[in-house]
Design a protein around this nucleic acid. Structure first.
Lengths: 157, 157
DNA sequence: GTCAGTGCAAAAGATTTGCATGCGA
DNA sequence: TCGCATGCAAATCTTTTGCACTGAC
């Protein structure tokens, strides 16, 4: 598991390799991103970065997250709500999937090796060599089920 | 497995239940959608519907696909390319997941009961009651692998 | 000093909404 | 007839881009 420091170093290295410049904005955005709780939207990232460096523009956040994607340091995700979010890229060893509560929106990460092997097998049976996958489970978490009897809280749409 | 006629009837019924009107536009859009190859974008649907009825507006396609979602007759999907697409909703018995070729974009549907049970079990272990899931496997299909030896085609990224 | 990187605002896409009019029930 | 549904255009929202200026190398 890469530390945020290692990721940041990898970013700097990748920039250098590509002949791109390290700038205060890129550094701030990358640092915030690597330090972040996972699954940030562009706007989350923008807001966080502005706290550190109010001189960063929205466009630069977009441009930098695209760089991070290219460097394979950020994964883009489109969950069922349609919101585009980003998370720190996972290496093979730390791959995980998501379990999402339909009520409170909580996202739990998990990894199950049986699932991974089964997927490989299914793909192979259908003639594919599997590169990657996305899996999201949606349901209601324990807390929401327990509080459902008392309070009824729903999310729009 | 519901036929397109059954789906259409279900749509009409759902409209009536909700106190909404059946109109030529809604009928045309629904018919085209139910008859469609799967995974249409809004624009695909719009283009197809215009062939049948050139008097249908873009906004109505949006409004109607939303209706179809509400009636659980259309499923909205956001594949990794970010394009929003719709497909005929699946009932529990005909649920399927997707296997997508990174090279040619081919989408193969499959269903595997072992996968379904495993997912239930994982969710339950983590305290969730599972409602639904999304799973997409990405890889390279046999045809693309076989032609790769001759022609080398790569995608950016 | 040079040219890539940046902020801003404008542009481009995708989706939604306001409003006058049309049409189904 | 009555009011929901529609088409159009304008409004939103998200993301990208053009341009003059800044700053890393």
């Amino acid at each position: 598991m890469q530390s945020r420091t290692e990721r940041f170093a990898a970013f700097r290295r990748a920039l250098k390799e590509k002949g791109l410049k390290s700038t205060a904005q890129r550094d701030d955005i990358a640092r915030v991103f690597f330090a972040s709780t996972r699954h940030m939207s562009i706007d989350d990232l923008y807001q966080e970065v502005r706290k550190v460096n109010p001189r960063v523009g929205y466009a630069t956040v977009y441009r930098t997250i695209k760089l991070l994607k290219d460097c394979e340091l950020a994964d883009e995700r489109h969950f069922a709500d349609g919101q585009t979010r980003y998370e720190n890229a996972e290496s093979d060893e730390e791959h995980h999937d998501h379990l999402i509560c339909d009520k409170c929106g909580k996202i739990v990460e998990f990894n199950d090796q049986r699932l991974e092997s089964l997927q490989e097998q299914i793909a192979s049976d259908l003639g594919f060599v599997l590169a990657r996958h996305r899996m999201e489970l949606y349901g209601i978490c324990r807390e929401c089920r327990e509080s459902a009897g008392r309070t009824r809280r729903n999310r729009a749409g």
